[in-house]
Each structure stands twice: as C-alpha cells, then as structure tokens.
Simulated scan of single mutants.
Amino acid sequence: MSAVEVRADMVNGFYTGNSRNCGYNLGVFYSVIKGNNANTWSFGGEYLQTYKPYGEKGRIPVAQFTGEVGYNLRIVSDYSQTFHLYGGVSALAGYETVNWGESILRDGSTIQAKDAFIYGGAVTLSADFYLSDHVALGAHLKEKFIFGNDTGHFLFAYGIHFKYQF
C-alpha cells in the first residue's frame, strides 16, 4: 500500500506575521506501507521559510529547500485501526538561501551568512486519525538537525497533515 501526504507546519514558534524569528514549512511526501505492522518508508520534499531578527524591527528571511528519506515505526494503534502513532527518523539534504542571495541589506550592512548546501536528519512523532479507509488527518512534531549552514543547526516544527492512502 502507498500514501500521499501534504504537511503544513509552524517552525520555531507560532508565526503571526509580527513574529520576528518564526516561520512555516510546507511539504509533500510519498509513503510506502510495509507489511501488517504498518511501518512506512517515506520520501518527500519540503519548503521551509524562517526569519532571523535584525535591528529594532527588521528580520532577514532564510529559506530551505530539502529532500527527505525516512522510516516511521508504528508505536501504537487502536483495535479498529482508526488511530496510529508513529515515531520516525529521516535523513535530509538540500539548499539554504539567506535573504534570497542578497548579501547587502537596505541600511548598507553586509550579511556574513552565505547560501549553502545543507544536510542532516530529523526525528518525528506523528499521529494519524483515519476518517475512512483511505483518508487520514493527523498532527506531528518534528526536530530537524541541519549542518553545513551558518544560520543554526536545530529547527523545531509542529503541524497538521492530510494523508490519502491507495
């Protein structure tokens, strides 16, 4: 069996538009469900947008484009199979851009952080609630460990997902 999943997350806090260091994450994943135990292999991509505070009221955008491969182990499910709780690990790689490649800010300051190829991993806790045989809504927590960049190594995300199983 297989599934397609669409994710929407908040990153490093709750983004309201006025937040100076929060962001959001959007992703699409394809999962292959193996055997009767419902463990899955997942393959997908994500776009992440965060901000770094600058000066009194400014902020600098940091965007990441990553591909991810992971394994999710089913921890628990109910008797009717309408609820599943998964724990997972994954490897990721991609590209990070700081201020969309512009190193000079409006006030003449120079950004020292450079665009870079990034790599790392993630740990995920995910809950799926099946509304029918093929459709599930869920929530998840994810901690990313990113290396190769100048903007930080840890990103915490939480969000919701929609999964269609076929």
Rank of each mutant, 00 (worst) to 15 (best):
residue 7 R to C: 03
residue 35 G to W: 09
residue 123 V to C: 02
residue 139 A to S: 11
residue 144 K to M: 13
residue 11 V to L: 10
residue 52 K to S: 12
residue 74 R to T: 13
residue 162 F to D: 12
residue 47 Y to A: 12
residue 20 R to S: 08
residue 42 S to N: 15
residue 161 H to D: 08
residue 21 N to Y: 10
residue 60 I to F: 02
residue 155 L to S: 10
residue 152 G to Y: 07
residue 117 F to T: 14
residue 125 L to H: 00
residue 115 D to P: 14
residue 156 F to I: 09
residue 122 A to P: 02
residue 2 S to K: 09
residue 100 W to R: 12
residue 30 Y to V: 05
residue 57 K to R: 12
residue 34 K to S: 11
residue 8 A to N: 06
residue 50 T to F: 04
residue 25 N to A: 03
residue 102 E to K: 13
residue 70 G to T: 04
residue 138 G to D: 07
residue 138 G to H: 01
residue 33 I to H: 02
residue 88 G to H: 01
residue 131 L to T: 05
residue 50 T to W: 04
residue 153 H to Q: 15
residue 130 Y to D: 00
residue 161 H to E: 09
residue 166 F to I: 03
residue 125 L to P: 00
residue 76 V to F: 09
residue 18 N to G: 14
residue 152 G to R: 08
residue 7 R to K: 13
residue 58 G to F: 05
residue 130 Y to C: 03
residue 122 A to D: 11
residue 114 K to C: 10
residue 36 N to W: 06
residue 62 V to S: 04
residue 7 R to P: 01
residue 32 V to A: 06
residue 135 V to A: 12
residue 15 Y to Q: 09
residue 5 E to H: 06
residue 107 D to S: 00
residue 14 F to T: 13
residue 67 G to S: 06
residue 89 V to C: 06
residue 58 G to A: 01
residue 34 K to H: 10
residue 72 N to R: 13
residue 36 N to S: 14
residue 12 N to A: 01
residue 83 F to N: 10
residue 19 S to I: 02
residue 11 V to Y: 03
residue 24 Y to G: 14
residue 3 A to L: 02
residue 154 F to W: 13
residue 113 A to D: 14
residue 97 T to K: 00
residue 127 A to E: 04
residue 63 A to G: 13
residue 100 W to E: 11
residue 131 L to C: 11
residue 36 N to L: 06
residue 97 T to F: 01
residue 132 S to Q: 02
residue 58 G to M: 03
residue 104 I to M: 11
residue 100 W to L: 09
